[in-house]
Write a protein that binds this DNA or RNA. Structure first.
Lengths: 219, 219
DNA sequence: GTCTATAATTAGATAGAC
DNA sequence: GTCTATCTAATTATAGAC
């Protein structure tokens, strides 16, 4: 093939590849900025600069700032499921429901540390009612809330865990598991690196022991 | 006294009283708005409107938006100490260190529910390093962090509580105690009113049981 | 001290060249 | 698809009348 023909056939492909790259870089930059500052306080210019592109690219690829936010949140929850699944699969197989629950608590602690953006975006949004909050709760939070509370109810009715209300338990576990990573910049100022692997392991061990008793991992 | 004399002596006093009222209304409105939206996303116009005054009053009374934020945060931590002290004094007297710690956990849960603005402002600020975060950590967080970790170390060295790292414990307690109230609008969408008194009591009971064992309140 | 008017920046979104 | 230039609206802070 002559160079002219090669150009004619490959140039569109290269453009498509670059477009996909721009889109992904915008998503990643948006996650980081929205998690750090919240939706309103994040400027589309700051996101574009972090993504090494121009501000109007946001409207071209996502039509609006809010559409970019929703795409970034969807992307983030996909990654959460990946991380949790990988963690659960990497742990030794479990025989009973209580150690299965313990495994999920451990997995969620590691995911919260690995994806601090998730719980940061949640607390930025959850402090006031809004269309964005209603959207994220309907689409992502409620199914997870119901899965966790259902599992806890099952353990509770069998009498193998403490007699604690499921909503109390949900918020206590999520709050205890996420705050060290949501507030990592604060912890650093206090002289503690919560993103250190040994901290994360101690944290996961402590939460399993606290919420499921000293033998949380065994039968 | 003639009306003219009364006016001459009382008008300045009335103006001072109105000034103090404007200042206080701005402080309260600022707390509510900053807690809901975070510093950058809160407009001084919204604060002034909520305080039923004009936007330039903020610069007159506090010189800048950031100075208002600092005054509001100082005001908030004063109220936290009030609420915690009142709670601790209202509970039955304690005989040992473990039940004293349990009383403080209970008091903090009630304070977190009564002053959701406190932990909302903390999470809005703590997700990224900034001058405001450094200020609030140095002035308000560090002394409280050190008091709690010191008390836990004492209990731990006596072997009367679980063997959990003090930094892990601090963030787990604060996270578990505050999230239901920080995220109260989210919980409402899930169908749970976390600001209901019976929820708060169940929550406080659960945290004491979880972190201090089933006999947290006894010797 | 309170209030209106406004100055100086910055925001999200769009037009149009390439 | 990418990029520059720009429109409209909203921001914090200030000037000055009362």
């Amino acid at each position: 093939m002559s160079p002219a023909v090669v150009d004619a056939t490959n140039a569109p492909r290269r453009r498509q590849a670059r477009s996909a790259t721009t889109r992904l870089k915008l998503l990643e930059a948006a996650l980081h900025e929205f998690a750090a500052h919240g939706f309103e306080a994040t400027s589309t210019r700051a996101i574009a600069t972090a993504a090494e592109t121009q501000q109007p690219q946001i409207n071209y690829h996502f039509s609006s700032k809010e559409a970019l936010w929703r795409a970034a949140v969807d992307h983030l929850f996909e990654r959460l499921d990946d991380v949790v699944l990988r963690q659960v699969e990497a742990s030794p197989p479990v025989t009973d429901e209580r150690s299965e629950f313990a495994g999920h608590v451990r997995a969620f602690v590691h995911a919260a540390a690995q994806l601090p953006e998730l719980n940061r975006i949640m607390v930025h949004e959850a402090t006031v009612a809004s269309d964005r909050l209603a959207w994220i709760v309907d689409r992502h939070v409620r199914p997870r809330f119901e899965a966790l509370t259902r599992a806890w109810r099952a353990l509770r009715s069998k009498g193998v865990v403490a007699d604690i209300d499921e909503t109390v338990l949900y918020y206590s576990i999520v709050g205890a598991a996420s705050l060290p990573y949501v507030n990592a910049p604060e912890a650093l100022l206090l002289g503690h690196d919560t993103l250190d692997e040994t901290f994360i392991d101690r944290h996961a061990d402590a939460l399993v022991a606290i919420f499921l008793g000293p033998n949380g991992t065994d039968a």
